[in-house]
């Protein structure tokens, strides 16, 4: 039951989606739309599981004093402060006591975590947590510069939520992305050193295309380089892409079929 029923569900839903593809009738369209919506909603519940996992791994790291455990506080700080920002916003131009409120909430959470991870004295941490909690509640009650807020998706555009997005998430994200410029160079060097036929073919093709798109070197080789590189992109590239795509397509189709038929069930645990 524990394993057979889910496999039966997979079969039923899989079969339905295959049939659905061939049935244009509105009933089939409705069910299709509902199913896709359901998957979205289930995904959000799963996100809660994810956040829980992140929280638990971080707290466990602190508890067991694993290497670099101190940084887990940074993760937890980022997590909770961003959630708090996602639920509060400024009412006017002034921030009032907002940042002090944020600090007291963070300290409350920090002290609770401290109490959870410490094996001995928990009393002091809990008392401090209580004090910070009272302070944050008082600020929340009497400060009118900001408030808890219900947002629509557009609503998330205001407040510190947006500021953290712009000044923490985006810079780190684009910097991580730009690391690729360095790594692509080291990867090219690695390919250069490999010195076998396949690596050389790869590198040669890469060089031709790279020279084509280099604004300084491209003119030296003139028209011919551009044409060769276009030819490479349009002809052998096209052929290989097609072979790979057909292969991948068959792989996906075969795996999906095996999943529907319950032949491939590695993704479903036992017991």
């Amino acid at each position: 039951m524990k394993r057979q029923f889910p496999l039966f569900l997979v079969f039923i839903f899989g079969l339905f989606m295959v049939f659905q593809y061939f049935v244009p009738h509105e009933t089939s369209e409705w069910v299709y739309e509902f199913l896709l919506d359901w998957i979205l909603v289930i995904g959000i519940f799963a996100l809660a599981l994810g956040i829980w996992s992140l929280y638990k791994v971080s707290v466990d790291k602190i508890k067991t004093r694993k290497a670099n455990w101190g940084y887990s506080y940074v993760t937890l700080f980022g997590l909770f402060v961003m959630i708090l920002f996602g639920f509060t916003s400024q009412n006017g131009d002034s921030w009032g006591w907002y940042f002090i409120f944020v600090a007291t909430v963070m300290l409350t959470i920090g002290m609770v975590i401290q109490a959870m991870v410490s094996s001995g004295q928990k009393g002091l941490s809990l008392i401090l947590a209580g004090v910070f909690l009272v302070a944050s509640v008082l600020i929340g009650m009497f400060d009118n510069a900001w408030s808890f807020h219900f947002y629509t998706a557009e609503g998330l555009q205001n407040s510190m939520f947006r500021a953290f997005f712009d000044h923490i998430l985006i810079p780190i994200l684009s910097t991580m992305f730009s690391l690729l410029a360095f790594f692509i160079a080291s990867a090219a060097y690695r390919a250069f050193r490999a010195r076998n036929l396949l690596a050389s073919l790869l590198l040669l093709a890469a060089l031709i295309v790279m020279l084509r798109f280099n604004p300084y070197l491209s003119p030296i080789f003139g028209d011919y380089m551009a044409k060769t590189s276009n030819w490479l992109m349009n002809v052998p590239n096209m052929a290989a892409q097609r072979a790979i795509v057909i292969g991948i397509g068959l792989g996906i189709v075969a795996t999906a079929l095996k999943v529907i038929l319950g032949i491939e069930r590695g993704y479903m645990g036992k017991g």
Partner: peptide
């Protein structure tokens, strides 16, 4: 390490809030 850990926490919360307000509150 600091940037990495901050990034992980903030981004996880970002997606949670985004999902909560758009999917749960906005659509469900």
């Amino acid at each position: 390490k600091f940037a990495e850990h901050l990034f992980v926490g903030v981004s996880a919360a970002f997606w949670m809030c985004q999902g909560f307000w758009t999917t749960i509150v906005g659509n469900l």
